[in-house]
Write a protein that binds this DNA or RNA. Structure first.
Lengths: 261, 261
DNA sequence: CGACCTGTTGATTTAGATCAACTTACGTGG
DNA sequence: CCACGTAAGTTGATCTAAATCAACAGGTCG
């Protein structure tokens, strides 16, 4: 199901060069210096396109690759010995995937594409070189790792300390915010307001929040009835995100430009 | 209640030099090159000794400092708008504290000393210099951040997907393992077996696992009755850690030497 | 058309929260 | 040395949020 394009194969015409990368245009990312660009292009091994449902990284295996999401949405999860699944986070364009595997030997989580995805592929061996020769890039890596740590801490606090309605609202707001940063919110086809693509299943959200599927469903229905959030058929609508956040005592961390790997 | 020693004050006789740092002797840490040592000594600003109960970092403030734990135990937590507290992790000697604050502007968690602690203090401004000039050190930072991310993911999976007995067992095993690595397990004063210092309160454990205090207490009592774990008056005894892990389907990540900042 | 996946809804059960009373340990000061 | 105050730990009774069970509906695809 997967398809890798190697830039050294053929004339490399099929692989976007970092310079031409559409992600760089987004306002949510920091600018890159000419030197950084040149370096990243050497570090880049190719591109990979996967269909929705593909397992890109499998817990327990040892992947020699690192990725940056170019297009599409995915999710990262662990499977416990008791069979339960914990979704660790949802992945968006610009996310750097696999830092942990570069550090620990073995993968302790899986990564799955929730839509068709395009991934930028880097070689793990090049990672060390990256940090050695590019202090700015290396700082970017640490920055992203710290940010990820922050997000996970936030998830932990939500899963551990909020009740159902608040959990759901928190998750929807976070997804909304991330898509907003990326400029992926669209105006609804019917009438006013914005909507966000949200391709995940209710089961995914349930597994992210430590809730049962049924309870997740009923809580979503309650939010819909109160006109606070409407997530159906792959699209999420939040009539008033600020009011929602206030109602459920949710403080979103403010926007910050972030580096792109 | 806190007491800072500045190496540039007096003759700096009161501050341990990195070369003489007792932590470096521990087998769980990677060796440092002479060059790294020299650099870290410049980066180090001083030492701080705090009494048990001191809040070292406060959520919402902006701390100009980074720490490495030299002695003692602590914990990191967030307070939610609803008043609940989530303990994010427990801190042990060798842990590097404050990477997030170095990256995000504002602290999004607090740090508290659970025993008397000795902390190695670094200046935040020096952090950027660190990454710029010391590729090896910079790799160490990324390594530690990735490890922290891994631990948090593990916590999230536990809080989200395990039931009470398993949660408690998981937490006790992890603390046990971390102290074991540091060589802090001692033989019990009465009779055979090992014991670990565990200065936290039941409330801390409850807040780490997203459980109520009462339920935590009752679950601990059940484990004690089954001779699986005994935590009382600041000491933890695990008669058979492997059996405990097996019983509750817990896989501990294997030991790996880690860098020291 | 039937198989399958995702979502929906009501009925029932239960793990864990909450409430409340009490014990134990450890000061501190008279 | 004892009385008192406070913080942590313990235990039983009660309540409830959320899990589980079960049946069904809608959409999609071969």
């Amino acid at each position: 199901m997967s398809h890798i394009t190697d830039p050294s194969a053929g004339r490399g015409a099929r692989t976007t060069s970092c310079r031409a990368c559409a992600l760089r245009e987004k306002t949510c990312f920091e600018d890159m210096t000419e030197q950084e660009l040149a370096f990243m292009e050497r570090f880049k091994v190719g591109e990979m396109v996967v269909e929705a449902g593909t397992t890109v990284l499998l817990q327990g295996s040892t992947s020699p690759q690192l990725f940056t999401v170019l297009q599409g949405l995915g999710l990262r999860y662990t499977t416990l010995p008791n069979g339960n699944r914990q979704v660790l986070n949802f992945a968006f364009p610009g996310d750097f995937i696999g830092l942990q595997s570069a550090v620990m030997g073995e993968l302790c989580h899986s990564f799955e594409a929730s839509t068709k995805m395009r991934l930028c592929v880097f070689d793990r061996a090049g990672f060390w070189e990256l940090l050695r020769h590019q202090p700015r890039r290396s700082f970017a890596i640490s920055w992203l790792a710290a940010r990820e740590e922050h997000f996970l801490g936030d998830s932990l606090a939500t899963v551990g300390q909020r009740e159902a309605g608040s959990k759901i609202a928190w998750a929807l707001l976070r997804i909304w915010q991330r898509l907003d940063e990326l400029g992926e919110l669209q105006s609804s086809p019917r009438g006013n307001g914005l909507r966000a693509p949200m391709p995940w299943r209710q089961q995914d959200l349930a597994d992210a929040l430590g809730m049962s599927l049924v309870h997740t469903n009923k809580t979503l229905a309650r939010l819909r009835a109160k006109d606070q959030a409407d997530w159906r058929r792959g699209w999420l609508t939040l009539p008033d995100p600020e009011a929602l956040a206030k109602e459920y005592e949710i403080t979103m961390s403010e926007f910050q430009k972030r580096p792109l790997i």
